[in-house]
Design a protein around this nucleic acid. Structure first.
Length: 247
DNA sequence: AAGAACGACAACCGCCTTCTG
DNA sequence: TCAGAAGGCGGTTGTCGTTCT
């Protein structure tokens, strides 16, 4: 025999969450923690499906979420991870502390996709588009100029991408002599430091050889289970969170 | 000023995997 | 071992705010 259904579909409210509902859910989870989502609506006094509660919590109410648009470095990280992982938004999100898969997916569809198309890059394959398709929004009255522009943009994109990924790759490298140094640097990168150099070690990204795409994918796919806890931002039990939420 | 079109994002849907009895 | 529910994930839709005509 299996489990009980997650919710009897009848009498379950749908649509946008109200402030009152949010408050109930926050209070319940901060008091009781994330346990069985099926039981949450009943215990919290909500007429919602457990699944809906989980989504609302993970995508919007979690206290460790960052709000607002993705930063430039976050955006570049998303682009690079997408090039390697494809539409595996949860895996991509696990590498951006405080960001959700839904948020990244939305940002990709509304912002990054268009940006890449403008740069002449296919957002699906991350390969340069054919010249004809490279800039569909603009008539190609000057094909020579547009080709040059696309080429420059692609180079710029590729260069930026190179800057971001090695720091992550080094984190999981087996070379223990440099591991700690890169760990610290990674955290700096992820938390929005402008500098991408390694002052402590004297290394810079240009010193680091890029592994092949296959090698990179291997470690990315092997390390699939990172969450906010792995980035040291697990503030779920922090008393201050309550204060923040109450303001 | 009003309606249409568009953009952004929250939320839902349905499928797949994992887990439980 | 297996049936079926829970949880997780990615794709899609709905809603609301903004801009354009």
């Amino acid at each position: 025999m299996g489990r009980q259904p997650c919710c009897d579909k009848l009498g379950v409210k749908k649509g946008p969450w109200t402030a009152e509902e949010d408050k109930k859910l926050i209070n319940f989870i901060l008091t009781n923690g994330q346990c069985c989502w099926r039981a949450v609506p009943k215990l919290a006094g909500l007429r919602r499906c457990g699944k809906s509660c989980r989504l609302r919590w993970t995508n919007y109410l979690r206290p460790d979420l960052k709000r607002g648009l993705l930063t430039g470095s976050e955006e570049q990280l998303v682009i690079d991870l997408h090039a390697r992982l494809g539409n595996r938004w949860s895996k991509i999100a696990s590498r951006l502390p405080g960001r959700t898969d839904n948020e990244i997916k939305n940002h990709w569809n509304t912002h990054i996709k268009k940006k890449l198309l403008k740069m002449g890059i296919d957002p699906v394959t991350h390969e340069p588009l054919a010249n004809k398709e490279s800039n569909p929004t603009e008539p190609s009255s000057n094909s020579e100029l547009s080709r040059e522009t696309n080429s420059n943009n692609q180079e710029q994109f590729q260069e930026t991408s190179k800057v971001i990924i090695p720091s992550l790759e080094k984190k999981y490298s087996s070379d223990s002599s440099t591991e700690n140094c890169y760990d610290d640097q990674l955290m700096g990168c992820l938390w929005g430091d402008e500098s991408w150099e390694f002052p402590a070690s004297g290394h810079s990204f240009s010193d680091i050889s890029l592994p092949s795409l296959d090698e990179s994918c291997a470690w990315l796919l092997d390390c699939q289970d990172f969450g906010v806890h792995d980035f040291g931002v697990d503030c779920f039990n922090d008393v201050n969170v309550m204060n923040t939420l109450n303001t």
